[in-house]
Write a protein that binds this DNA or RNA. Structure first.
Lengths: 150, 150
DNA sequence: ATACAATATTTGTATATACAAATGTATATT
DNA sequence: AATATACATTTGTATATACAAATATTGTAT
């Protein structure tokens, strides 16, 4: 379905606006199809933080690093991490070198939650992008990169 | 900047996941660049509702129509409309034919707020998409349509 | 050493969102 | 007509988000 149809727009929208609406609409569409996180008892933001922490391969990340790498940068990282701590998926400790900094580590429990989600998410991601072949996926990703290029 | 760089991913991500991350990241990126709404005292969801109502050209929309056409469908439409009413940007009345339904109209104040925002948003949308030429924009929009096609 | 600015994170408070349950209205069935 | 079912929206409640102000720590200049 073309985006104009999807949002039932009557009159023609100019190209830049149309594209941006399409971008946000499609992004929301993709997010709505995901419910693995809810089943696992976390939010997508929390998942995102866990992924960043796993990517650290044993090294801790501090708050500012998390904030910088998160897809949705507007969340309140302190409270987001609080939630993960209460679920025992991460732990926190004050940085010995600089006590303003906090070091966040993913726990064993956190890692095994991710491992449990990995195949489900992989399968889902393939399914949701199934209409596009490899070169279209690459093309689309490149165009998004180019859009952001500032 | 390539998406891997943007989110500082160390190891290679498979294409479908990479694309979906890029999609969400870029969508958020675009949203963060917008602050006209805040200046106008509304949220982007509220703006979205106002746009839908203007698109009705004098005809009312009811709650379910708004919900269906909104970019972000998970908002609580009742309360969102409540906010707009308190700002006198829309008005609501019970449908005479079917009193379960509520008819929402945009007010003169709502319309002139949109008119005031129109050129600002148009200019901004052009600026934020300036790295892509016409055919790239079309191509990108088509790929997003194709992705969603179910 | 003291004062001051810079950095890193947390907290307070207001607002928004998610989602199930409740309400009120219309339509269909007996 | 009474009852059940479907429909459209609202409300309750828990949680999340936004963002400014506060706190704590460090580095730097006097």
């Amino acid at each position: 379905m073309k985006i104009e149809e999807a949002i039932k727009s009557t009159k023609e929208i100019e190209l830049p606006s149309k594209l941006l609406i399409n971008l946000m609409y499609t992004s929301r569409y993709v997010e709505y199809t995901v419910n693995h996180f809810k089943e696992a008892g976390i939010t997508s933001q929390q998942y995102n933080v866990l992924r960043i922490l796993r990517g650290q391969r044993g090294n801790p990340a501090n708050m500012s690093t998390l904030q910088e790498r998160m897809i949705d940068k507007n969340s309140n990282t302190t409270r987001l991490v609080d939630k993960l701590i209460s679920k025992e998926l991460v732990k926190r400790q004050v940085c010995a070198q600089n006590r303003r900094k906090i070091e966040i580590f993913i726990t064993k429990t956190g890692l095994s939650l991710l491992e449990q989600l990995d195949p489900i998410i992989k399968e889902h991601n393939q399914r949701i992008t199934k209409n596009l072949n490899k070169s279209e996926l690459e093309n689309l990703s490149d165009l998004l990169d180019k859009l952001r290029n500032d």
